[in-house]
Design a protein around this nucleic acid. Structure first.
Length: 940
DNA sequence: TAAGATAGCGCC
DNA sequence: AAAGGGCGCTATCTTA
């Protein structure tokens, strides 16, 4: 990042043809320098597909543009709903609400229910009542009277440990007499915002409980221990238990191990002896519980189907009860009546003031966890383990758990602990640049919009509703033509000009603006699910393109023309492909408008609209980069004391992939589209380097293996560019060209050669290769010819023809896919390579959209899930590798087909050769590309 | 006021 | 009628 005086920053802007991005290039040099930079930028962005480009050289002084008093103000003032989780603020007891990790789990299950309802909406509508059964299961029971009495029964079985001598006695029993038992543990933690903060270096343990099963007796027949570390002996008491927690031989079972591990390790105790995480076991047992109940301890132990594997001695006690059900109080409204909201007092307060029920609540967590473990162990043990379709001799899915997911669970926790080092200074600079560029774009758009609607000057350009109003006001809903968007609508926006309303003395924080339609007949590209025109970036770009094709023949008036020809490049993203396809100018213009709107009156008006809309796209994309990546990565909520960012890695997907949360490090902007090079902010510590290793076409290789497809296996065996080979297979004329040596499939420059003797396939038959590539990806997802025809802007018949070309040489794939659909229909489940199952709802009376979804999922899950299995095996190998361990290399992150390691620079080259060794279950070789660098951006 | 709903966008 | 699998996150708007 070059040093620049922000206050006097001057930028120049390039305009790609209307409908494409407007790019601002900071530049304080000459025009020649600017041009050079522009070309570099475009080479980098690989936007080679739409020439001639029009560049407009335009100097702008940032200072000249009024930077509004932090548009942030609006974002901050308006209520923020954190990720659809229940927002429970508890800054040191200031708020009356509280939250524990279980609540997050509950919320998670809720989200999953919600998501499911959305996803399978049509199905649920057809089956009355099915939507409410979950609620009755999880919430209904605890409301029954008697819950407190039953909790009290627990109290008699719990040994309360609140002094050192008692602790020592108990620990002695745990580490000697009872060391062979399986112990369930659970902690209660205060002073942490579970859904915002990483548990690493956050939170304080107030108490913990250990249950070792009915055969343990810690005195007076009490088999459960509850340890008070809030008052009493405080944290010294916790340290008394270090020998227990740290012993690798004493088996410990947890529900959501990751959280408890981190909070305990915050006290300098390194937890060992991880035996099982009941959440992972439950997910292995049934990955579709997100549809029905979720994976919270409460939901699992409250479900008879889950618990039926437990022996009577583990069943006698009741399942977990959530805090809300024990300690939740209805908020009292001002008038004294009972409100709808439930609040929970802070953990510390409950522990001090509601001691007895609190102890029961907390002890019940450990007890329930062990019950759950016993039940799941028994149930998983009854499930035979089939690997790659063949039974593994005398082994069950519980063996699978112990062999794979148990060590994997431990790896994930280590990775979370490690975290990634983030260069905050870099992000801070980037943030400023991004905000400045955003302002430039915003004011351009506002200026244009306010010509049509004066109040648009103050509109919130980040609000899709307001944008829709401005651009499409008056339009009919595509689903219900009787409903129309009003011509004028009022919105509340921050009162930036401090207008004082009549009868008021001081300016209010907000004021109303009236947004009217620009009243121009714009073609509508796509509609949202609810029937209104979409204002997504994609839709807007298409819109701008359509306007330009109508009004602009060649180029924006007065701008300089520069013809730029760029080389084709090796790594095109799918996005590139898409825009390339979309860039075909369309002539048809079916707008959904009825009546009295006008067209743009002059070409200039059209051009300006294009530019304004381009600015809008730019502004939105910058905004999303800032708020999704640049800002959160700098937050101390997500990083520990060392400044490293610790995401949470979860096995919580239907297919067995990992997901990352708080922050989601798996969706950091990819290289090509990363205009602020955010990946450069992920760096290695001084003296260290990063290794980024990824599998090439992992999922396609998995598909080739699963379907046993000769054509694909051969192509992978031959190596080189897989997509080109696919194209050769599909199109006879390409095959002929290859055979007659008119084009080359691949070319590796020999000394003395600087260009290939004949054109390369990917240049000569670029569009065919593109289609082949898209098909390669789409087929595994079950994309339909209709979807492809929409992407490619061709008729369905044509798309279907292309799809048939693909399948012609890959009949095994078609056969395999049909077999998976049949399996999903008849057995209600499909399997991955290592034998994990994904169950589907019954399709007998499902709606066709649900059926379609299930069928596509059925053909995708084995591919995606098996790829996840392969990636997991690779990670297990890496963590088992002693050489890497000696050298000090550690896993940091996995992004589905890629892993990131960090270690000392001097051994980087040695380590680079290591990743992804180990056993390959597939019939195809796996291609691994490993690079080493100082940051994530350079290592790709 | 807080929760749900909707739209949109980032990744593989 | 719709028509690509799997995720997490943010912002705005509506509703209770």
């Amino acid at each position: 990042m070059q040093r620049r005086d922000e206050k006097r920053m001057v930028v120049s802007r390039i305009y790609t043809p209307p409908g494409f991005e407007v790019t601002t290039i900071p530049c304080d040099g000459t025009r020649a320098l600017w041009k050079q930079k522009s070309i570099e930028l475009f080479k980098q962005k690989r936007e080679y597909d739409c020439s001639p480009y029009s560049f407009k050289y335009e100097k702008m002084d940032i200072n000249a543009i009024r930077i509004q008093d932090k548009p942030k103000s609006q974002k901050q003032l308006i209520s923020r709903d954190v990720g659809q989780l229940i927002d429970n603020k508890r800054p040191n007891g200031l708020s009356s609400k509280d939250i524990l990790k279980e609540d997050v789990l509950n919320n998670e299950s809720f989200m999953q229910r919600m998501k499911n309802e959305k996803q399978f909406q049509s199905n649920k509508l057809g089956h009355t009542g099915s939507g409410s059964t979950d609620k009755a299961q999880t919430n209904g029971r605890p409301h029954k009277p008697g819950i407190h009495e039953r909790l009290t029964n627990i109290y008699e079985r719990v040994l309360v440990v609140d002094n050192a001598s008692m602790a020592r006695e108990v620990v002695s029993k745990l580490t000697n007499q009872y060391r062979h038992l399986i112990h369930a543990c659970d902690t209660e933690v205060a002073k942490i915002e579970v859904k915002e903060e990483t548990p690493i270096d956050h939170g304080e343990i107030t108490c913990f409980s250990i249950y070792s099963g009915p055969e343990a007796d810690f005195g007076n027949g009490k088999s459960c221990i509850w340890v008070d570390v809030l008052d009493g002996g405080g944290r010294d008491l916790l340290h008394e238990f270090a020998p227990f927690f740290e012993s690798p031989d004493i088996k410990k079972v947890w529900h959501n191990y990751s959280f408890d591990n981190h909070v305990i390790e915050n006290y300098g105790i390194s937890v060992s002896g991880f035996h099982a995480d009941t959440m992972h076991m439950a997910r292995l047992w049934d990955s579709s519980r997100r549809i029905n109940g979720g994976y919270s301890l409460e939901a699992l132990t409250g479900d008879q189907k889950v618990m039926r594997g437990a022996e009577p001695c583990y069943k006698e006690l009741i399942g977990k009860v959530s805090m809300k059900n024990i300690f939740g109080k209805k908020k009292v409204k001002k008038d004294g009546s009972e409100g709808k909201l439930t609040t929970i007092a802070p953990v510390e307060e409950l522990q001090r003031e509601a001691r007895e029920p609190w102890i029961c609540y907390s002890a019940l967590d450990a007890i329930s966890t062990l019950q759950l473990y016993k039940s799941l162990e028994s149930q998983l043990s009854k499930m035979p383990w089939n690997m790659d379709g063949k039974p593994v001799l005398k082994k069950s899915m519980f063996d699978f758990y112990l062999e794979y997911w148990q060590p994997f669970g431990e790896i994930l926790v280590r990775m979370e602990t490690e975290g990634m080092l983030v260069d905050r200074a870099y992000l801070a600079v980037t943030e400023k640049v991004a905000k400045a560029e955003q302002e430039v774009a915003a004011s351009r758009f506002r200026k244009w919009a306010s010509r049509y609607c004066p109040d648009a000057k103050y509109m919130n350009v980040g609000s899709d509703t307001q944008l829709r109003q401005l651009l499409f006001g008056g339009i009919c809903n595509s689903k219900d033509p009787l409903v129309t968007l009003p011509e004028v609508k009022t919105f509340k926006v921050p009162n930036v000009d401090k207008v004082i309303e009549e009868g008021k003395k001081t300016p209010t924080k907000f004021c109303d603006i009236k947004l009217c339609s620009i009243r121009v007949d714009l073609p509508v590209e796509t509609y949202t699910a609810s029937g209104w025109p979409s204002v997504s970036g994609d839709a807007l770009k298409t819109l701008a393109r359509k306007i330009s094709s109508e009004y602009v023949v060649n180029d924006a008036a007065g701008s300089q023309l520069d013809d730029v020809v760029f080389d084709d490049s090796e790594t095109m993203t799918d996005e590139d492909l898409e825009s390339k396809e979309l860039s075909v100018v369309e002539n048809e213009d079916e707008s959904g408008h009825v009546g009295n709107l006008r067209r743009f009156q002059t070409p200039e008006e059209g051009i300006e609209a294009c530019h304004a809309i381009s600015s809008l796209c730019e502004l939105c994309s910058i905004d999303s980069l800032i708020s999704n990546f640049i800002l959160p990565l700098q937050s101390s909520n997500l990083s520990g004391k060392s400044g490293r960012v610790h995401c949470s890695l979860n096995i919580n997907t239907e297919t067995g992939r990992l997901s990352a949360r708080r922050p989601n490090l798996q969706n950091q902007p990819a290289l090509e589209k990363d205009r602020y090079k955010i990946r450069q902010a992920f760096i290695a510590a001084p003296g260290n380097s990063l290794i980024v290793a990824d599998y090439g076409q992992l999922e396609l290789r998995v598909l080739a293996h699963l379907a046993n497809c000769k054509s694909m296996l051969d192509a992978f065996k031959a190596g080189g560019d897989f997509h080109s080979r696919t194209a050769v297979n599909m199109y006879p004329h390409i095959r002929e060209a290859i055979e007659k040596k008119r084009v080359l499939l691949e070319w590796y420059p020999q000394p003395g050669e600087d260009k290939p003797p004949v054109p390369l396939l990917k240049d000569a038959f670029a569009s065919e290769r593109r289609k082949a590539k898209m098909l390669n990806f789409s087929i595994a997802y079950g994309k339909t010819p209709v979807g492809l025809s929409r992407d490619w802007k061709v008729s369905v018949a044509e798309a279907k023809e292309t799809v048939n070309l693909w399948y012609k040489e890959r009949k095994e794939v078609l056969k395999w896919q049909q077999a998976r659909k049949k399996e999903a229909r008849e057995d209600g489940r499909v399997h991955t390579l290592l034998g994990r199952a994904r169950v589907f709802p019954s399709l007998t009376d499902a709606s066709s959209s649900l059926r379609g979804h299930v069928e596509r999922a059925a053909i995708n899950t084995p591919v995606q899930g098996s790829a996840a299995d392969v990636a997991m095996c690779a990670m297990l190998e890496i963590s088992k590798n002693n050489r890497l361990k000696e050298l000090g290399w550690k896993l940091l992150l996995q992004v589905h087909d890629e892993v990131i390691l960090e270690g000392p620079t001097e051994s980087a080259e040695v380590a680079k050769a290591k990743p992804f060794g180990g056993k390959n279950f597939l019939k195809v070789d796996l291609a691994v590309d490993a690079k080493c660098a100082q940051n994530w951006y350079s290592a790709k």
